[in-house]
Every structure is written in C-alpha cells, then in structure tokens.
Amino acid sequence: MELVFEIKGGDFTHAGKASSKIKKVLKQLNVDAKMIKRIVIAVYEAEVNVVAHAHNGVLRTIIGNDSIEVVIKDEGPGIENVEKAMEAGFSTASKAVREMGFGAGMGLPNIQKNADELEITSEINKGTMVRFKNYF
C-alpha cells in the first residue's frame, strides 16, 4: 500500500499531517504500539526537516506485510556535512525556526534512533533524500 504526501517548505501548520495519517493506517493494520511510535516519530521529524529547511518535498511511503519504507525527497539547500548533521544538537536552523520550537538539532539523530535502516543522500543547493525502513 502506497501513500504520498506533498510537503511545503515553511508551512509549519501542516507539519505532522503525514505522520498522523500513517499512524492511523498502522493502527488499523494492528502494528505493535511501540513500533508505531518509533515510525511516527521518525516520519514527523523528517516532515519537520522539509518544512524547516527545504522549499518543498514529497514523502512517499510503502507499507507492506512486515515492513514500512519511507522516502522523503526535497528540493532545497541540501546538507553540507551529513555526518555532522547526524550529531545530536547540531543545527543550521534559522533563529526564526528555533523560536517556533523547532531546529534543536535532534531531527536526524531522532530518525536514526527510531529507524531500523537509514540512508541519506544530499546535494548542495539541490536537495536531500532521506530513506528509512522499519520492520514490524
């Protein structure tokens, strides 16, 4: 089963829409509550990343019998140093974004913590692709 969501950069009011919808689907599929929680946290962080940093993005998820794969592709500034971005607390978020309570530098570390498999590729001034997979 495939679900696709468009994410608009800068639109914080709608951040969380994809994670809420995915959560509902996983509950109906009788996925363990603890696993749902991990997936939802990862999806939400990924959504906020696009909203806070990129111009726009697409979140695509494939939910199967025993796993879920989420791919988020965005058009945006890209990540200069992916390794550094994975460090807890490292952030390039603007002051405005931080004042809204986002951009604490926990986005990618949180995704890593909650995903079973994670892959990030990024190109400066073009965009970023985050792909993660969790097994139920």
Partner: peptide, 23 residues
Amino acid sequence: EPGNVFVLHTNRTKALEKMQTAA
C-alpha cells in the same frame, strides 16, 4: 489494558488487503 478496536483484521495481510480495497 489497550483496546485496539480500530484494527481492520488481526491478520496483517488481510488487514492490508481490506485497506487497499477501502482506498
């Protein structure tokens, strides 16, 4: 105890099928 009353089917393959049909 949790209730899980919104589960479409306890068998995930069947639940997934039902969900796709519903879509």
